[in-house]
Structures are given as structure tokens and as C-alpha cells.
Amino acid sequence: MPEFDSKKVADIHQQLHSHLPSDSALRIKALETLLVDKGLVNPDTIDAWVEAYSEEIGPKRGAEVVAKAWSDSKFKQKLMQDAPAAIDELGYLGKATAHLKVVENTDDVHNLVVCTLCSCYPFSILGIAPAWYKAAAYRSRAVRDPRGVLAEFGVHINNEVEIRVWDSTAELRYLVLPQRPAGTEQMGEDELAGLVTRNSMIGTDRDLGANPGRAY
């Protein structure tokens, strides 16, 4: 059982710095070998988690949630009031989404999500976070210079638009509901979902009419 001893862990990290192999692949192999030897994990289950988050769970789920919110006003109302219950209807409630909140972009508001203290992310609807979301450059600047950050993603926000940055400091997780592009009134949910980029659900993309059909 853990003793919750911070000093001991700081000392362990110093020793690991000296003793672990430098190569990441060898480090993770060493960890897996020890845990399997000790009966703490089953390697086949690791395979299954990798496949689940490569094939089944990813931003296509979030895109489906967004497309349904655009198409179905009752679903949207539920999503805004009780997002975990709404995504559970689609079978997408899961890891890190039991306290999901949805924040909506409008003509006057743009939302951007970050976790400055670690890398919190709504896994069961967006999958594995992109590398930039977990990197120091994004985590440090999103709260201080969101307009500069967005410009690096090719997104230029008019000064009249209010930017709301959501720093995920608790167990709440945030999903941005992007604006439905003009001229999509005839589209069904599947086609609409194809317009929704992963970045638009984090807030580093805004105008989905500008680049239709992108995968992310």
C-alpha cells in the first residue's frame, strides 16, 4: 500500500534518473516486464486497451456528439445541462467524462480548453490527447496568450469576440461545442460529423466551414 511519502518519491525519482535506461521503449518494456512477472497486469489486456483507443474510442465520438447537438435541439439542451447523461445515451460515457461540461461557441464567444497543471482530457469522447496539448508550450501559453496560441493554429479571432479559456484544474472536463457552419442545413448527422475536427472540440479550431472534410 502507498505511504503517500513525497520525500521518498523525490528520492526514488533521483534513483530512477540514474538507473532507468535512457531509451523510452526500453523503459516501458522494463515496466511491463516487471508488472507481468508480478501478476499485476496481463499483457493481452494492454493490447486490448491499445486497440480500443486506436480503433474504437477517439474524436469521432466527440464529432458525433457535436453533430447530434447541431441536429437535435432536445439532445443539445440535455448536453448543455447534463453532458454525462447525454453522452451516455450514445454509449460514450467513460474514462474522465463523468463530470463533463460542454461550453458553446457563438458569434461573440470562443472557448479554449487547457490543463496547465497536468494534461487532463475527456478521454472517452476525444481519445488520446494530441502531443501539443500535453506539451509545455501549449500548457504555459493557452491561459496567458490564447490569441497568439490560436494564431499558431491558423485561427484568428476578432477582438470583438470574447475568449474563454477553461483550465481543467478539477475533475471536470470540457468539450467545446463549435458553431455549425453556414450552408449545412441539408446535411444529415453523419455528414455533419465529418466536418467536426478534433481541434474544434478543444478550441484550437473555430470556423469549420473553412476546411470541410478534414479528418482532424
Binding site: 523510452s24 521503449a25 523503459r27 516501458i28 518494456k29 515496466l31 511491463e32 508488472l35 497486469v41 489486456t45 494492454i46 493490447d47 486490448a48 486497451w49 491499445v50 483507443y53 486506436s54 477517439g58 474524436p59 481519445g127 488520446i128 502531443a131 478534433r198 479528418a215 482532424y216
Partner: peptide, 15 residues
């Protein structure tokens, strides 16, 4: 859009 860029990233996620 790739969730993992190296096999070891996926292994660690699974672990």
C-alpha cells in the same frame, strides 16, 4: 490524428 506515435506509447497507456 494518430493516438500513438510509437508502440511504447500505446503500451504505457494500456499499462
Amino acid at each position: 490524428g494518430s493516438p500513438f506515435h510509437h508502440d511504447w506509447e500505446g503500451r504505457e497507456w494500456g499499462i
